[in-house]
């Protein structure tokens, strides 16, 4: 009753009252939201880092073009333990290649990022120069269709900007890009 009188009579009182109400509501809502949200958090499982699931990747080539960076943060990775060390490598050479040499017409990689080293007859070691790689996935396609699939695309941690919404994940046709927790920073093969 008293309150009512105040409200009617004095605008100043009314303002003060509204202010108190507003403050309580605001403070309460902050606490409530924070409380509810804290039940939804988890440091361990929460996804922070974008990674490609090599099993799902179809090497569509969008990783090269759709990253927010001018040169994609997606690079080709090589799992040596899976590699067959073949001389005729499906990732290194174009299909229908005639001579197994390093001539431009025989090589798959458009930037020359795959390095080949002789180990012993008939094995060759392959390594990726990640500075040159542009993530086009041509070699990965070759290796997956004719080879052990030891070459695969993955997002390089130090280059990735950890966007809230990965621009490649948005266009990935096979939903291969997912968030992984901090403590398993790389989704590696082999």
């Amino acid at each position: 009753m008293n309150n009512d009188n105040n409200l009617k009579n004095s605008p100043l009182q009314r303002r003060k009252f509204l202010k108190v109400v507003g403050m309580t509501v605001a403070g309460g809502s902050i606490l409530a939201v924070a409380g509810v949200l804290s039940t939804k958090t988890g440091t361990k499982e929460a996804g922070h880092l974008w990674q490609i699931d090599p099993a799902k990747c179809t090497q569509c080539g969008r990783c090269e073009t759709d990253c927010v960076l001018s040169v994609s943060a997606v690079k080709c990775f090589h799992a040596n333990k899976v590699c067959g060390y073949c001389d005729l490598c499906g990732g290194y050479y174009r299909s229908n290649v005639k001579d197994l040499n390093t001539a431009a017409e025989n090589l798959m990689c458009p930037t020359g990022a795959i390095q080949r080293k002789f180990v012993e007859d008939p094995y060759f070691e392959y390594a990726i120069d990640e500075d040159l790689c542009n993530g086009c996935g041509k070699c990965v396609k070759g290796c997956t269709s004719f080879g052990n699939g030891s070459l695969y695309l993955q997002i390089q941690r130090d280059l990735c900007k950890d966007c809230n919404e990965c621009a490649i994940a948005k266009v990935c046709p096979s939903d291969a890009i997912t968030l992984v927790p901090l403590d398993q920073a790389y989704n590696l093969k082999g």
Partner: peptide, 19 residues
């Protein structure tokens, strides 16, 4: 083959210089 090699070299050069 020679032509391919030349063009390929040019393309790579152009790409990296552009970058």
């Amino acid at each position: 083959q020679e032509q391919i090699r030349q063009l390929d070299l040019m393309a790579r050069k152009a790409y990296f210089i552009n970058m």
